[in-house]
Design a protein around this nucleic acid. Structure first.
Length: 706
DNA sequence: CTGGGGATGGGGCCC
DNA sequence: AGGGCCCCATCCCCA
């Protein structure tokens, strides 16, 4: 499709399934190709690759997502593993691979992925030469990713063009085809590409027509800069998606393929590039290090530092700082120009970059994405504002798309709503339609402002009435607190203006108040589901991406949450800390005990219904616990109001309250749980009362303690 | 076939 | 922001 005449695509493809990336990754393409040529259909491997590439384009059977800056690429693990030793080590354990953005840019990785799937490395038709990733950048990426075929090809092409020279340590990250930061960081959405068309050349003026299987993450859709973790090595799975770190790492996780030490906190804070232990650095750019084939030597337990690299850290860090790309623009060191001639024409459009380079080595490293990483906007309006920001800061020369949200959604076949007409973007709460996501976002923002205004007005009104959050931002005074109507107490002085709940601190109150808002400020950019808390949305995103950072040491099972892992570990330890005080059953998970208790409550309700005589008194002699449950069920029938029942339950029946304590819960919680169980059971019990008594007797027998 | 228990996933919400 | 807990739903296994 875009093959260079000098490249024998078939030769590459025949070598590809043979695991050229495996082991040291030293290729062996020639021999394998010759052997296959002699014994197999010449078109087989080509056809195979063609089919794989088509499948990649359609996302068919793609089982891994690679994150490069805020671009996402879908691919097949097998193909990647067969092509790259580095990727092979990564895809074994994870479905989401975050590549070092300093080592490979989206445009470069696109070229690399093209090569993997086609064996061809050529100009993208229709794409301006300036937007093509340079051969030097592709070479660096191929070296980093340990794709010997591509390394060799790049070298050949560079030599042919007279531009090739050996990489020098720290020879510049700036020629990696990186796009200006601001461009990517402002890309607003992450969308899936399930209906993407087959790959076709990028069309000028249509940056969306990039690649199928390539997705773009919102680096700042939540108003945050790319997470500093985006700088850490890929094995840490730090994702820049939506400016969120989706990769909370299990400390108990099994050794990952390339368990290099995480960047130091200092380097993270300063947004330094990967430390010298990063595979990006050590694998390709450190002095004296071979460009690839060292992945195996890096394997070990997390935190294990490969020897012999710490010494070069200071020098390398210096070089790193020296080559720190400029904020909002592309930076290229003069030294690099000498060695990578094909990077010309992609210089910083902001100008003045070089003047600052040396200064950076002495002054604190600049924070990246200066246009975005200011103080995090406090509130959702800002988030949405950033959602709206797209890629006005063009100047990108790497060909990386910077689509506006709506266009991207349309391109990717993702339509938030399928409403007729031009107003495809519909505000869920009010039903208004808009022709673009930007307009919808502006509208939603207005919603949020209304909500905020309403909240403030309510707060002021409450303050005027002597309740609510009047003491926000004020020193608390005991008289004020104690005198506040509505039960504000010292422990929870911050009271919700919309309901009766009170909180210890204003932040929690504000968080809670979002639950009353009409619009949920944190939408999932993949499915559109909205959340009241950013953390919940982040967690939700993990489920989309199959990201399970918390691994069980014992069985390798992985979870999206730490708490799940903790829960799961009880299976292996045999610990069952939750005991039913009615029947003595033990449970590893509290939720299963609660479920179990509801069963008891339901049984008790059935017993109550079955045993209540015309005088309303219980007839059967059940153990106290069951009787208590039964009484509760009766009370539930008399007091359908749940809260009333809870209070009634505790106040009017101390014995029942004592039963609740057996559950190991707070009395309040236990009452609530039992009431819920009884409430659920009440209806059934009422119905069951009409059934035959024998049936109920049998049911009760089953759940009564021996 | 049914119901209970074990286990997991996802969302809400508070700290 | 992240941790933790709770709730609901669901699946699977087994008696």
């Amino acid at each position: 499709m875009r093959g260079h005449p000098e490249l024998a695509c078939v030769a590459h493809s025949t070598g590809l399934p043979g695991g050229g990336g495996g082991g040291g990754g030293d290729g062996g393409d020639g021999g394998a190709a010759a052997m296959l040529d002699a014994s197999e259909s010449a078109g087989h491997s080509r056809q195979l690759l063609l089919q794989l590439n088509v499948q990649r384009a359609k996302g068919f059977l793609c089982d891994v997502i690679l994150v490069v800056q805020n671009a996402l690429f879908r691919a097949h693990k097998n193909v990647l593993a067969a092509s790259s030793a580095y990727l092979k080590a990564l895809v074994v354990h994870d479905n989401l691979i975050n590549l070092d953005q300093e080592m490979v840019s989206p445009a470069v990785f696109r070229a690399v992925l093209d090569f993997i799937y086609t064996g061809c490395l050529g100009d993208v038709e229709g794409e301006p030469p300036a937007a093509q990733p340079s051969l030097g950048a592709v070479l660096a990426a191929a070296s980093y990713l340990q794709i010997p075929d591509l390394v060799a090809l790049c070298k050949r092409k560079l030599k042919r063009s007279g531009k090739y020279c050996h990489f020098r340590a720290g020879g510049g990250y700036s020629h990696l085809g990186k796009a200006p930061r601001g461009l990517r960081a402002a890309t607003p959405v992450i969308q899936s590409c399930y209906s993407a068309p087959p790959p076709r050349p990028v069309e000028p003026g249509n940056p969306l027509s990039t690649h199928c299987g390539e997705l773009y993450a919102a680096a700042s859709s939540q108003g945050a800069p790319l997470h500093p973790h985006a700088l850490c090595p890929p094995e840490r799975l730090c994702s820049p998606l939506c400016g969120l770190d989706l990769s909370k790492k299990s400390p108990n996780g099994p050794p990952l393929p390339l368990p290099l030490p995480a960047p130091s906190s200092e380097s993270r804070e300063n947004s330094l590039p990967p430390g010298p232990n990063s595979p990006a650095v050590s694998g390709a750019l450190l002095p004296g290090h071979p460009p690839f084939g060292e992945a195996a030597s890096y394997r070990g337990s997390p935190g294990q530092e490969p020897s012999g690299r710490a010494e070069v850290a200071p020098e390398f860090l210096y070089r790193w700082m020296k080559h720190e790309p400029m904020v909002g623009g592309y930076v290229e060191d003069e030294d690099d120009d000498e060695e990578e001639g094909d990077c010309r024409g992609r210089r910083d459009k902001g100008g003045g970059a070089e003047a600052e380079l040396d200064h950076k080595a002495e002054s604190p490293p600049p924070r990246r994405y200066a246009g975005l990483d200011g103080a995090e906007p406090d509130g959702e309006a800002e988030d949405l504002e950033n959602d709206k920001s797209t890629s006005e800061e063009t100047g990108c020369s790497s060909g990386g798309p910077s689509p506006a949200a709506g266009s991207l959604e349309r391109y990717l076949g993702y339509e938030p709503e399928s409403f007729g007409g031009d107003n495809l973007y519909v505000c869920i709460p009010c039903g208004k339609g808009f022709p673009s996501s930007e307009q919808l976002n502006a509208h939603v923002e207005a919603h949020n402002e209304e909500d905020e205004l309403y909240r403030k007005e309510a707060a002021e009104a409450a303050a005027a009435a002597g309740q609510g959050p009047p003491f926000l931002d004020k020193p608390l005074s005991a008289p004020l607190l104690s005198g506040a109507p509505g039960g504000c107490d010292l422990l929870r002085p911050y009271r919700c203006s919309s309901c009766d709940k009170a909180y210890k601190d204003p932040a929690t109150l504000r968080q809670h108040e979002k639950t009353h808002w009409l619009t949920r400020p944190y939408p999932c950019s993949i499915c559109g589901k909205k959340f009241t808390q950013r953390g919940t949305m982040t967690r939700h995103m993990r489920s989309h991406l199959g990201l399970k950072p918390f691994a069980c040491d014992a069985c390798g099972m992985r979870f999206t949450r730490q708490y799940r892992l903790t829960e799961h570990m009880r299976i292996h330890s045999g610990e069952k800390p939750y005991e039913c005080q009615v029947c003595g059953g033990k449970f590893a998970q509290q939720r299963n005990l609660l479920s179990h208790m509801k069963m008891h409550a339901a049984a008790a309700a059935a017993a109550a219904a079955a045993s209540t005589g015309p005088d309303g008194k219980l007839k059967l002699d059940f153990p106290d616990g069951v009787l208590a449950m039964a009484r509760l069920a009766q009370q539930q029938q008399q007091h359908p109001d749940k809260d009333l029942l809870s209070a009634h339950f505790l106040a009017a029946d101390p014995k029942l309250a004592m039963e609740s304590l057996y559950l190991g819960l707070s009395p309040d919680k236990a009452a609530e749980v039992l009431a819920q169980g009884a409430a659920a059971a009440a209806a059934a019990a009422a119905a069951a009362a009409h059934l035959h008594n024998d049936h109920h007797a049998r049911t009760i027998d089953r759940f009564s303690p021996p």
